[in-house]
Computed example of a mutant assay.
Amino acid sequence: MSEASTAKGRATQARIVGGAAEVLREQGVAFTTLDDILDRTRTSKSQLFHYFPGGKDELLLAVARFEAERVLEDQQPHLDCLDSWESWYRWRDAVVERYELQHDQCPLGSLFLQVGRTEPGARAIVAELMRQWQERIAEGIRTLRARELIPASVDVDRNAAALLAGIQGGVSIMMSTGSSAHLKAALDSGIDQLRHAAAGAGRAEVN
């Protein structure tokens, strides 16, 4: 009975978070009230505070975690299959498409503005998202290296960090200007750098 109640509780909590995320995406954090979320999720106020005793701030953190997970999910299956140059460009297109669909809105960024990036919970969510994202890019670079598509001398972690930094910079500019040109350039430059390393190794072997 206890296990069933726990499973039911997790399902209810997930329903509230998912519904809240939909409302926040549609209306924006600044224009969304608890009543809007209650209406969308068909939840009573007492039930919401049962699962989120900290109220709106705690719920916003849960939604931020949900949105952070979506950042990685929206890049699948490409992010976990970076085993050829073609797959890298498919991933590149998926990243660009994701942010172009958002236009100048970033649900995750808006949520962190609301709860405050200096809050320990918010910082932990950002840190974990970036850690996972960089590690998956790094794993793709290791796969290229294992398949001898790039030389063993390529610094995996440095290139993964540079690619992620380029993406974040491109997204920031896109949020300000509405143009994805910088995001595309950052991704293309990062992938080109890896390909140039491979070409350079090939020329060295010939010589």
Score class of each variant (00 low, 15 high):
5 S>P: 00
50 H>F: 06
128 E>I: 04
55 G>F: 09
58 E>H: 08
190 G>C: 10
191 I>P: 01
132 Q>M: 09
77 P>K: 13
81 C>V: 14
92 R>P: 03
85 W>N: 06
87 S>R: 15
207 N>H: 12
183 L>T: 06
65 R>I: 03
4 A>M: 05
77 P>S: 08
36 D>M: 06
32 T>Y: 08
37 I>D: 07
129 L>I: 04
81 C>I: 15
139 E>K: 14
57 D>G: 04
46 S>I: 05
188 D>R: 10
86 E>W: 13
171 V>A: 00
161 A>M: 07
13 Q>G: 09
113 L>R: 10
145 R>E: 10
76 Q>R: 15
27 Q>L: 14
95 V>M: 14
132 Q>G: 06
15 R>A: 14
23 V>Q: 00
128 E>C: 07
89 Y>F: 15
91 W>M: 04
131 R>H: 14
162 A>Y: 02
201 A>V: 03
84 S>V: 04
32 T>L: 02
42 R>Q: 12
48 L>G: 01
121 G>F: 00
104 D>A: 10
73 E>T: 11
146 A>I: 03
102 Q>Y: 13
198 A>S: 05
27 Q>R: 15
116 G>Q: 10
32 T>W: 01
73 E>M: 15
127 A>Y: 05
180 S>D: 11
143 T>Q: 07
133 W>P: 00
178 G>F: 11
182 H>S: 12
55 G>Q: 11
111 L>T: 00
165 A>Y: 03
9 G>N: 14
32 T>H: 02
8 K>P: 01
145 R>M: 10
76 Q>V: 06
134 Q>R: 14
159 N>M: 15
84 S>K: 13
137 I>R: 03
178 G>W: 01
152 A>G: 11
121 G>L: 00
136 R>L: 14
54 G>V: 03
53 P>Y: 07
141 I>L: 13
31 F>M: 15
162 A>E: 12
179 S>T: 06
179 S>E: 15
23 V>D: 02
4 A>Q: 14
179 S>G: 02
34 L>K: 00
4 A>C: 05
57 D>Q: 09
101 L>Y: 13
109 G>R: 11
119 E>D: 14
25 R>C: 06
18 G>S: 06
11 A>Y: 01
26 E>Y: 02
137 I>P: 03
182 H>F: 13
93 D>L: 11
106 C>W: 15
173 I>M: 10
108 L>Q: 08
108 L>P: 00
87 S>L: 13
116 G>L: 06
8 K>G: 00
9 G>E: 02
77 P>Q: 08
13 Q>S: 05
128 E>Q: 13
102 Q>C: 12
114 Q>F: 09
148 E>F: 08
39 D>V: 12
84 S>G: 12
192 D>R: 15
68 A>P: 04
111 L>R: 03
135 E>G: 03
187 L>V: 05
134 Q>T: 11
144 L>A: 10
60 L>W: 10
36 D>K: 02
148 E>S: 13
141 I>K: 02
55 G>N: 05
147 R>V: 05
200 G>Y: 05
47 Q>R: 06
154 V>P: 06
190 G>M: 10
99 Y>G: 13
158 R>Q: 15
43 T>N: 02
67 E>R: 13
194 L>R: 01
119 E>Y: 02
153 S>V: 07
10 R>N: 10
188 D>T: 13
168 Q>T: 08
